[in-house]
Computed example of a mutant assay.
Amino acid sequence: MKAITLDSKQESKLLLTDIQTRNLLPGEVRVLIKAAALNHRDEWCRKGLYPNIKDGVVLGSDGAGIVTEIGEGVDYDWLQKEVIINPALNWGENQKVQSSSFEILGMPRNGTLAESVIVPVDRLYEKPSHLTWEEAGALPLAGLTAFRAVTYQGNIQPGDSLLVTGFGGGVAQFAVQFGIALGAKVSTSSSSPEKLARAKALGVDFTFNYMDHNWISKALADTDGFDVIIDGVVGDTLNHLIQVTKPGGKIVFYGATLGNPGKIEARKIFWNQLKIMGTTMGSDLDFKNMISLVCEKKIHPIIDQVFKFDEAEKAFDRMRDGKQTGKIVLVP
């Protein structure tokens, strides 16, 4: 079958190739992929920046498709079902944190950028009927990460003031939509006027261009500060976020693309009794609850562009360059 694999010998580090499939083990299913989507971890693998990477592995964590084969012990009712795949494996029983054996589909085990993928049956959920294949394929990893950040870590309540930084990325667009669906007063930031206009169209209350040196005072004037901030950048921007967090508020970060902060405004943190916490992916309970919210509120993932598998390099480069608004989807 055709699959997009990591190959360090290629200039693009990607190779669309034929790979051998295998027989199913007990409790496994084979899913014919109808749509898959990119996440930044795929690009980090391409750059060699992800731990334990190896050539020949099929990339991709997001996917949706049809169950075409079931292994021993799997309920026959799964056969031919339209499904969405939870890419979080071995989270464990502790809702607070993932287990030491936790891993994500797509490295080190084969992922979803293939014509089919083998996964344990307990990773399957029925595809929300209101979603297209492309929307369903775009939801899993970024949606799960955003849902946990907003609900479990952020504990967003109706009427809370929420800031989601970096609108345009997958996690950020989901965090914005989940915050709105849960009744928060949502604001977002970006350096792109076009992305901010898209956020406004979704129902965001306030938008801020973080390249504007006055954005902090503008945010405080518009909102009086935020109860919860969801961020994937950190670096020295952490101190900016501290300035716009209400006393008793929370800063939840799911990534650190700018690295570690050079300094931290420690006095403001303890005096205002702020909570700064990390989050990643989510538990099986988080995924189940995310699907319920998506179905209840008829949430539609924002799709940036759809590429064919043989256009993978273009898709990866678009994500690398930060040009997307929403999720980049690939189809076989």
Rank of each mutant, 00 (worst) to 15 (best):
E126A: 07
A219N: 00
R109N: 14
H40R: 14
A35M: 07
T257E: 08
V228T: 13
A149M: 06
I291A: 08
L258K: 15
K250L: 09
K308Y: 11
K263M: 11
S99T: 13
D286A: 07
L238A: 03
A136C: 08
A181T: 09
L14M: 15
W215K: 10
D55C: 02
I180V: 09
E311M: 05
S12K: 09
L79K: 14
G282S: 05
L6C: 10
D236E: 06
V331F: 02
T68K: 12
E134C: 05
W78D: 09
D77M: 12
K268N: 12
L113H: 11
D212N: 15
K200M: 14
D304R: 03
D317H: 12
D304Q: 07
I66G: 02
E43N: 12
S283G: 08
G73N: 09
W91F: 14
I156F: 05
V234Q: 01
K298Q: 15
V97Y: 13
I53H: 09
D231S: 05
S292W: 01
A172W: 01
A136R: 07
T112C: 15
F147L: 04
E311C: 09
N86L: 12
F147T: 03
M290F: 01
Q98E: 14
K47H: 04
I299S: 01
F167A: 08
V97A: 15
F253S: 03
V331W: 04
V234T: 12
T223K: 04
V306N: 02
T188R: 10
P140H: 07
G143T: 09
G183Q: 11
T279L: 05
M277C: 10
A201K: 15
E194L: 08
I84L: 13
E126M: 08
A142R: 01
P301Q: 04
E43T: 14
L14R: 11
P87H: 07
G259Q: 09
E311D: 13
H130G: 06
H240K: 15
M1A: 14
F174I: 00
K54N: 11
M281L: 15
L330M: 11
Q95V: 12
W78N: 11
K314P: 07
G249H: 06
W91K: 11
G322S: 01
P158H: 14
V233I: 07
K268S: 15
M107E: 10
K314M: 13
I33M: 06
L285Y: 12
I242P: 00
G56T: 06
G92L: 14
F307W: 05
A172M: 01
D231V: 02
I180W: 11
E313A: 10
T21R: 11
S187M: 04
A64I: 01
K323Y: 00
K185Y: 08
K34D: 06
R198P: 03
F287Q: 10
D62I: 02
G27D: 04
R30S: 13
K127N: 10
A312Q: 08
V150P: 01
G225Q: 02
T207M: 05
E93C: 09
W133Q: 04
P108R: 03
H300C: 05
D205L: 15
E135S: 10
P301F: 08
V29S: 06
L330V: 06
R123F: 01
D231R: 01
Q80T: 15
G27M: 02
G183M: 13
S61D: 03
L6V: 12
F102C: 07
